[in-house]
Design a protein around this nucleic acid. Sequence first.
DNA 1: CTGTTAGCGCGTTCAC
DNA 2: GTGAACGCGCTAACAG
Lengths: 338, 338
Amino acid sequence: MKKKVTIHDLAKMLNIDSSTVSRALANSPRVKQKTRDLIQAKAKELGYSRNVVASNLRSKRTLTIGVVVPYISRYFFSTVIAGIEEHATENGYQVIICQSHDQIEREQQMIQTLLSYQVDGLLVSISMETENTDHLKHVLNQEVPLVLFDRKCNGLSLPTIHIDDFQMGYEATKHLIDQGCRRIVHFTGSDQISIYHDRKQGYCQALKDHGLVVSEELILTSALKEADGKLLAQQVLDMPLRPDGIFCANDLTAISAMQLLIEKGVKIPEDIAFVGFSNEPLGNYLSPALTSVNQNPKEIGKVAMQTLLGELSTKPSPDTDRLVPAHLVVRASSLKKG
Amino acid sequence: MKKKVTIHDLAKMLNIDSSTVSRALANSPRVKQKTRDLIQAKAKELGYSRNVVASNLRSKRTLTIGVVVPYISRYFFSTVIAGIEEHATENGYQVIICQSHDQIEREQQMIQTLLSYQVDGLLVSISMETENTDHLKHVLNQEVPLVLFDRKCNGLSLPTIHIDDFQMGYEATKHLIDQGCRRIVHFTGSDQISIYHDRKQGYCQALKDHGLVVSEELILTSALKEADGKLLAQQVLDMPLRPDGIFCANDLTAISAMQLLIEKGVKIPEDIAFVGFSNEPLGNYLSPALTSVNQNPKEIGKVAMQTLLGELSTKPSPDTDRLVPAHLVVRASSLKKG
DNA sequence: CTGTTAGCGCGTTCAC
DNA sequence: GTGAACGCGCTAACAG
């Protein structure tokens, strides 16, 4: 019913110029306090609301940032987004969220769309498929700040927020060793993907540091999809010499692997101890026998947004990477008694 | 580096008018195929990308819809959003997502912001606190289509997407009765909130239809926060006559209630059978003893978006509510053997 | 088929 | 302190 009220409407009613109204609404000190109050009162009275689209066009900033993640409904990502969103809102920024479905083509298209929306900055967790980085370079050419999180990008030097994957791989493995495990399997993903690469390196280093040998047949590589968990677990059960520990570099896979083990009557951690990555709230409930690496997704989101805000204000980006502290969540019932 | 290319740049280079360029890029048949091709080729060559903000200002539509949910990181909502997003993208719409944190104040503010962004439509799951609906009326006054999902709004007649809560409450309770339960507790929320009201009605009706009495002391009301689960479960254990079935009208609460029961050594379903609401992937993993109502969140998102698209094209909104089919997920291990 | 004109609503000069 | 004028990039309306 009510037509949209513009600053011109307000101006006419008060017999002043629209630019004054504009300034008053922006609380500019260049307009007398009295007229400011008057204008703001009238604005509220008429239910005026600023047309952000017009404002954006003129001011060439949208106070909007774009976020691209593989899947919004994965707990890790939705929690990262919650962190981003909270911190963004506090700083007056809006957030537009897109899913890439882990497909580079969609990722490229979404980023292009976000750019055409004139977003002020971009927060991206690149897809598993992403090897070609032309679309990311394109973003930089447009001088739009870009911060990555979770997944690092090989070719390009970009600020990236992630946990210390090497360190956590090391700690996870050390935990198993401390529990008395001597034959520890590692489920990993493509070595091209740096998070998996690094976690594996941490695993290897921990073994070496504790006088254990790194054996290739204990390192099982897969796409780490949910279904892979059961396949991998079965592979472990079929091994002639049964392993006594598993470190899985991925959350979904860890869960489904544990499922199979439990179904098959394997006692965890007595028969095989298990360390996975966190998939809260699953990790909280699923199995008290699951030790996991808590990646702190909300914190990752917060730090990512902070970093982007930094880029937004000052051009120089000194630090390339920022590590978010992660830690092992060990439950009493996940400890071997022996 | 590269400055942003505008249609004027293209126009000058090709010695034609900018409006022709505009039409060509919109693939309007009013431009000769040949010049269209020429222009589009040049556009691609120079890396032109339409300034959507300017376009929106002029065309008075943003092809953007706003979504407001209590918490983005809850599985139910993030999955609804995934459904919305998929269907929106397919139809050329962008999605902006906001969290209300279940606070009416934030909800009002977010909706106001989205309106100032000139969104073409709004999809809202109202907060638990929402009783005053002025801000929703305001949306309608602005003639912006508004569709609710999950939570219904009492005062206002608005298209709302939800499951058949009465029916599911009935089925859940009937399932317990069929398993041999005779003393069935119901965890419910505020009777003001229609989903809880309806689920409770279904519970009551099922009892009556099967010759059981509705007993007030078996109906436990709380805010249904996560922490309430444990409190409620303890209450059940403390009852002089121990119940043999529980129907919980909420996901988070169901999970934490089960947790406590399991901790206390209660055998589910042998001692007490349990039906909750789905919180996938939790429901899949947590406990094979948990029967739950699958609310089909992705489908809810899809239907919500469809409904909104309908409102977006044709003004009349005939149907006020749309029910999304839900169903009980019963696992073999959740059946009482007796 | 294409060009011309005139804004969309707001922010930013400049003068005053 | 305030107002007039202009332009952001694009598109609707009307010519021709």
